[in-house]
Design a protein around this nucleic acid. Structure first.
Lengths: 249, 249
DNA sequence: TAAATAGTGTCTATAAGACATTATCTC
DNA sequence: GAGATAATGTCTTATAGACACTATTTA
């Protein structure tokens, strides 16, 4: 491939344009990443919240999150959005990115959702297996953090529009229960069918027939999505068979 | 409810904090809104693209979009994200917001997706009924714009990551075909069952059995989602019954 | 009347809902 | 053996796929 004179002129024009370019003068919003960290412990859906140390909403509970790191110029444009979410998750919970299921949820960008300045937040949700919850160091980033039962939040006023973000996350997760493997992100590495069913009931808020649910799980066993695993639950009656997820998680 | 001394102190503290607050000094990204404007004309899925007049990607085709207006301070924080999308749509197509179906798609935020500076773009998709396509003034915003058949774009290199954004939009729409009324946004105000079926086939890229599809539509008629409408198509064989969507659209 | 497409009907497979019954484990 | 829960089975209903067949309109 040869460069014509026109090609060279255009390349030069482009270099010049980019060199001369100054990021637009009009104001920009701040961009944050907020994470709805969810787990299920004691048959209860819980979300991780941090207590705000500064205004606005000082002393109130909020989603963990923080500013997208943007770098300082053309040379360094900072971190990818997904990387920012993984970083925030690790900073606030101590969980390495591969230990939680992290997915973008929705972007919230109403004016005045932050009284200080214009902030657009890209919300993610993270699902943490209950057996990993002990690894979560509450108050990692020098911020007070703790798990809240989601239903109990009706009595609490959260900072910003974070209550709406949590609601949207749960709605999204519920809608994905039936056509994804998302529910395996909310049980321990080994689990029983009744435990799985409980996850479903807690997320949807509706009871699920035991027999019908088993039938679905039976198909997953046939399809080698899950397999029997060693181990036993300590119960006061008949213990359920223990399974594990087949693919790496 | 009475204010205690502590309440008053806290309120004062808050006012002071907000007055003193200076938006963070660390750099911010630009935030844009890009819109995947789709329609179906002549049994072909088409997307509206605009030709870039400036570097980078000068002369290449790109999604219509623009910067989120942020206002200039605390007093005015600018427009909601959704409003920005509706505004951009109208600016670039002339379509009033209520004439197209507009929904947030996904937020794309990889570093270096724009060589000039850090740009996070919140992508939306807009579905335009084919009978409204004539209202779209190509090149509205003094920019050259035109409709492209989506399959033909495989040969074209689009600006930025816009090809990936279009792909994601189509994937999302395909996934919503079966549990939403989204396909009615891609047929004229009155339509026939074969026309509806064609929409489905074009979006999914897979053939759909006529009888089976009719059966589904028949259920929608029973459920009063659509109803028969006056009119007739000019055809060279038996003309199909014409329907309209019941709810306001 | 021929061509073409609209529209109908049927058989089968899959999966969910509702609900009854049996099996197995712990104490 | 009692209590409790796991596990299985059955009947019904809803829906999709595949495919054959009939009806109606235009030229």
């Amino acid at each position: 491939m040869t460069l014509t004179k026109a090609d060279k002129r255009q390349a030069a024009e482009k270099r010049e344009f980019l060199a001369r370019y100054r990021p637009a003068n009009f104001p920009r919003p701040s961009v944050t990443v907020d994470i709805v960290v969810l787990t299920i412990v004691d048959a209860e859906l819980r979300v991780l919240l941090v207590k705000r140390k500064e205004h606005p909403f000082k002393g109130q509970w909020a989603l963990p999150g923080g500013f997208l790191r943007v770098g300082d110029g053309k040379k360094n444009q900072g971190e990818d959005l997904d990387v920012a979410a993984a970083r925030e998750l690790e900073e606030e919970t101590g969980l390495k990115p591969n230990l939680a299921y992290l997915e973008q949820l929705y972007t919230f960008g109403k004016a005045d959702r932050d009284p200080r300045m214009r902030v657009v937040t890209v919300a993610y949700y993270a699902l943490v297996r209950p057996d990993l919850v002990p690894l979560v160091r509450s108050g990692g980033d020098a911020a007070e953090a703790s798990w809240f039962a989601v239903p109990s939040l009706r009595k609490t006023t959260l900072a910003f529009d974070h209550a709406a973000i949590i609601a949207k996350a749960i709605e999204r997760i519920a809608s994905k229960l039936d056509y994804s493997n998302i529910m395996f992100k909310l049980v321990p590495q080994t689990f029983t069918i009744p435990e799985l069913r409980s996850v479903r009931e807690i997320i949807t808020g509706a009871p699920q027939d035991r027999g019908n649910f088993r039938r679905r799980v039976a198909r997953m066993i046939e399809d080698k999505i899950i397999e029997q695993a060693p181990g036993k639950r300590i119960t006061t009656s008949k213990p359920a068979t223990v399974f594990r997820f087949c693919q790496k998680r």
